[in-house]
Design a protein around this nucleic acid. Sequence first.
DNA 1: ATGGCAACTCCAAGTTGA
Length: 254
Amino acid sequence: MKIATWNVNSLKVRLPQVINWLNLNQPDVLCLQETKLQDEFFPMDDIAQAGYHSTFIGQKTYNGVALLSKEAGSDVCTALPGPDDVQKRLIAATYGDLRIICAYVPNGEHVDSEKYTYKLEWLSRLHHFLQQEQARYGQVALLGDFNIAPEDRDVYDPEAWRGQVLCSEPERQAFRGLLDTGFVDSFSLFEQPEKTYTWWDYRMMAFRRNRGLRIDHILLSREMADRCTAWQVDKTPRKLERPSDHAPVWVELA
DNA sequence: ATGGCAACTCCAAGTTGA
């Protein structure tokens, strides 16, 4: 079984790439972030033609998340518990014995920004939600764009980024807090090449120079981690014309 | 030292991302 995550930075623009990636990689579930589509415009017919069910929650211009899957999901949840939030950043569903959570963590903009405060609050709410889901379902996976580089090895220039948004200590602490609820960063289950990243800025030829960050993650509950046989980032779509700035990441489960 | 790209939007200059 293969489960994957990809921040597509506009599903409207990236649809052909997503369809092609589904055909080539045949994931059981693909989590998408930054679809940037209102629900009435979601291209579920094109995705169905590729053999996939769609479950989604979106809004105009910003955010938006979706689950594409070979089997239909059940028990769908489209928001974190708590007060209504216009920002559509979370969707979860059950596939067989697996609970899959797709998250688009706020960027935070800058450590002095109100958006940074919102990010930390959002992560705290995610933490509580994860505990609930863990208690309710046995096998849980949290996939998505976390907008956090957990360690210095996840940053092309750790000194330049030290204390900056995506790398600040409170964010890294929040990431470790998620792991403390009983999850493993699947990346860390395997020997990894140095300078393994999942996002590269569009500017300054960052991809060609591999000036990237590892900010897209797949966290697995312990039972699932025991079944995990591979972690991969697929850099091929990042090399295409009009790429997303993020690459897809996937894990294989026995 | 700064900004450098891309996508979005009442279509065009401002916002957002990371």
